[in-house]
Design a protein around this nucleic acid. Structure first.
Lengths: 334, 334
DNA sequence: CTTGATACG
DNA sequence: CGTAGCAAG
């Protein structure tokens, strides 16, 4: 079932391989001009698709270019923004408007009430926010152009479901469940490893319950690097939150346990790619040194794999968060 | 005994009146070039008097010019820096090196241990730090080119002297006491007014005890605007910390009570000047609107007034703190 | 509005 | 290193 397409190793420069892909350079007027001031026509009825510019206080690139979305596909994006308010000041909107996903989920918004003007509310009619009790922590959000059948907050299989309400939102669509998730961090010196393993048990139970009904997309910051290939320094991190034996085993059990399998889609399409990560610590100049972790995923029920067209990491888009966005392309209606 | 010299009303532009004063433009090589990179002679034996440059993240002027210090005088400077670490990033050193006081006292350093490279330690052999128990609050420091006879921390006359140790340092010199002080704030909604009045009683007692032995210079952020003329909006602040009837009365009692008098030197030299303040809140764009308070003083025992040559407010020097520095010139040896 | 300490990552 | 919320001014 594997059909690796293209690798996006960091050594590959845009100029080299990108010719193979159908691209829309954002500065070309393929649809509309990109970084245009809303000065021209104040109130014409054409939709304003003015794209935000990139602030100066960020290392995020001033230009982003992504492959065009093929006809008949749905584009999902997932991004741990590490504080939505800060991210907004560092190019959040520029990414979102350039990517233009059908469904976007965010983790670590660190807000405790809904914010406005995050996305174009005419496009994303469905906007769902989840908050932690403790202010400034966790928080997930989903923005969807497609109205779901139902929405659920929290992890109902957890012994203390209320403690999970700011970390997980599920959207039900006719053909699948979409589970956007910010899995707890095991903490410095693994002080919260037990709570995390408790979460993992509940998580697996929940995913299997959903999977028994419809196939599942499980996405977000799953806060674990699966294998040695999924982080730059496996040797020195076996006792670090996110790469302990326990966390990796739990993840492995969900993916490849005795029951229905789940597929780490990015790894499926890039089975041997090293050096592509979704998270670079702000500390130690980790990004400059290329010392990262792959903690963010689009995991899907195995039977959904047929519909997965592409699973990518937006490595270029670093600077508005310590994580980069992920994108999944799925064919046929949801 | 009053001998008003010059007013520094804000309307007066430097170009107008400054001609009267003997000036050293910092950019003129009256002594040494000012904003010079230490690139020329790496290790010549002449003292490096390279003056720090002004960072860009501040509204502090890139050029400062002060009257030259007359022969046979001692220059005292006092500055509430509102966080020494932040001030250092916004031009603190540029001011200090341009001013070049003999004795400098700081309030609200907000540090809890001595810092280095604050002043030229070859010049200022005497460096005294005082800290609060609570980190990030209060803190005073004195840097002196002249070695004192003795140094005292805290307000010994206070019922709880230990609570005062991070707010007051006294240097004894042969001819006077120098008391550098950060008087407590009465707090939002005057929640700590009683503690402040308790401080005031102890303060008066302490000053009179010292004054019985030698004349006193009492300086720093005394956290009270004496009269209506000493703040921009007296009408709306009669219940605001720093301008309550109680605080003003206590200050008045120290200055003009039945016992020995103390003189507010700046007001002495500028008896009718309005609109010159030592503090502008960061809130409400107070500086732009000129809405300030005169909270910082050089107060002296009346019998010391003969020796006071000048008492000034460095209004230009705003941006490295929400307070501006004060300067006092005193003639004859300390 | 701005600082600094804090918890968390 | 960076975010957010906090207490204080």
């Amino acid at each position: 079932a594997k059909r690796p397409k293209k690798s996006n190793d960091p050594e590959q420069q845009p100029s080299k391989e990108k010719g193979k892909q159908k691209e829309i350079k954002v500065e070309e007027p393929a649809k509309k001009p990109v970084t245009r001031k809303t000065s021209k026509a104040k109130k014409d009825n054409e939709e304003s698709t003015a794209i935000s510019t990139v602030p100066t206080n960020t290392t995020m690139p001033k230009q982003l270019s992504f492959p065009a979305k093929p006809e008949g596909t749905t584009k999902f994006a997932s991004w741990n923004v590490s504080g939505l308010k800060a991210s907004l000041k560092k190019g959040f909107k520029f990414y979102v408007e350039t990517e233009d996903p059908d469904i976007l989920c965010l983790q670590e918004t660190k807000v405790n009430e809904p914010m406005h003007d995050i996305v174009d509310e005419r496009k994303y009619k469905c906007r769902e926010w989840a908050f932690e009790d403790k202010k400034g922590y966790g928080g997930v959000a989903i923005f969807s152009k497609i109205e779901p059948v139902s929405k659920t907050h929290g992890l109902p299989t957890h012994p203390k479901p209320d403690t999970t309400k700011g970390r997980i939102i599920t959207l039900e669509f006719p053909t699948l469940y979409y589970v956007a998730c910010y899995v707890p961090n095991a903490g410095d010196k693994l002080v919260r490893l037990n709570e995390k393993l408790e979460w993992n048990r509940a998580m697996e139970k929940y995913l299997r319950e959903l999977d028994a009904k419809k196939p599942v997309i499980w996405t977000g910051d799953l806060n674990v690097a699966h294998k040695e290939i999924d982080l730059a320094k496996p040797e020195t991190n076996s006792k670090t939150a996110g790469f302990t034996r326990e966390e990796r085993q739990d993840f492995e059990k969900i993916l490849n346990g005795d029951e229905n399998k789940f597929i780490d889609t990015w790894r499926h399409f890039h089975p041997d790619t090293k050096g592509v990560y979704t998270y670079y610590s702000y500390r130690f100049q980790a990004r400059t040194k290329g010392i990262g972790w792959r903690l963010d995923y689009h995991v899907v029920s195995e039977r959904l794999l047929d519909r997965v067209v592409e699973s990518e990491t937006r490595s270029e888009c670093w600077g508005a968060s310590d994580h980069v966005p992920l994108v999944l392309l799925l064919k046929d209606d949801l």
